[in-house]
């Protein structure tokens, strides 16, 4: 997609000069790309929206959300306080889950990664819970916590904790051995070793864990809201769809997408601030 990616020759055996020449021709070709090709993404978007609109129009029941319908629904939805209070509830739950879950996950992850006996002791539970679709714990949690926002809080925290533990533990195990040996030889105290070596070395993995956690937290929050009718964006989508306001429901889905994209951007920004030495994300 990007010029650099295009320019990378997949066959490493090529001599240098042809590669440079190839890069030049390709760059030349890119600049001379006709207008219709540069407009291709926009054209595709318009075409797909048109097809979608036509399909929705041909649906006699009028139950299919359509692009025009959604565009018309946006102002009314955005003006309604119910929508914003629902959005606020869900965003707050997502933020709580990320902050509390990832803090917990980082602490546990460092312990799991640093102490092999603890890792083996908990391996069964960590890998089982990590692999399990989060939805599967929701029925159990609703029995324990009732159909309340506490249930959502618990699910969201668990959703964030597990990927955080797994990723942090992975990073804590990969601390460079030579640096660690040097610290042992220099008799650096264990607490200093933790602060000056283990945590900085693990930071990229901690951030990668938070990124995975965000997606899972959003899904978890919405799932609990659906099942336990806790007020939030999930309930907004569900009640809108059930009262045949599909376009309004779709606006709710779009806001969830926005929350996800903004969340990832914020995490990326945080990563640049706390771990500027790391250029690309792990994995």
């Amino acid at each position: 997609m990007t010029p650099t990616e295009q320019a990378v020759s997949p066959t490493g055996s090529d001599p240098v000069v042809p590669t440079v020449a190839a890069t030049a021709t390709r760059r030349f070709a890119r600049e001379r790309r006709p207008l219709w090709r540069r407009a291709l993404p926009v054209l595709t978007a318009l075409l797909l929206l048109g097809v979608w609109q036509a399909l929705a129009f041909s649906d006699q029941s009028g139950l299919t959300p359509s692009p025009l319908g959604i565009a018309v629904a946006v102002p009314a939805v955005v003006a309604s306080p119910a929508f914003w209070s629902a959005a606020g509830e869900t965003s707050l739950a997502i933020a709580q889950g990320i902050v509390i879950g990832c803090t917990l996950g980082t602490v546990l992850g460092v312990i799991v990664g640093r102490f092999s006996w603890f890792r083996h002791l908990t391996a069964l539970y960590v890998s089982g819970l990590y692999a399990m679709p989060l939805l599967a714990i929701v029925p159990l949690i609703t029995i324990w916590m009732g159909y309340s926002s506490t249930a959502r809080f618990v699910v969201v925290v668990i959703a964030a904790t597990l990927p955080s533990i797994v990723s942090t533990a992975d990073g804590a195990r990969r601390v460079p051995h030579d640096l660690e040996d040097a610290m042992v030889v220099l008799r650096v105290s264990p607490s200093r070793r933790l602060v000056d070596l283990v945590l900085p070395a693990t930071l990229p993995y901690i951030m990668a864990g938070i990124n995975v956690a965000l997606g899972r937290v959003i899904v978890g929050a919405v799932a609990v809201e659906f099942l336990a009718s806790v007020p939030g964006l999930g309930t907004f989508i569900l009640t809108s769809a059930r009262s045949f306001h599909q376009n309004e429901a779709f606006v709710g889905v779009l806001l969830l997408v926005v929350i996800g994209v903004v969340g990832h951007a914020l995490i990326e920004r945080l990563r640049r601030t706390v771990a500027p030495w790391q250029t690309s994300s792990v994995r």
């Binding site: 649906d59 139950l63 299919t64 959300p65 939805l135 997606g215 959003i218 899904v219 919405v222 799932a223 659906f226 964006l233 999930g234 989508i237 569900l238 809108s240 769809a241 059930r242 045949f244 599909q246 429901a249 779709f250 709710g252 889905v253 969830l256 997408v257 996800g260």
Partner: peptide, 12 residues
Amino acid sequence: PIVALAPIIVVV
């Protein structure tokens, strides 16, 4: 998020 689409998929 596919979960959020579920109520709309039910209707459509």
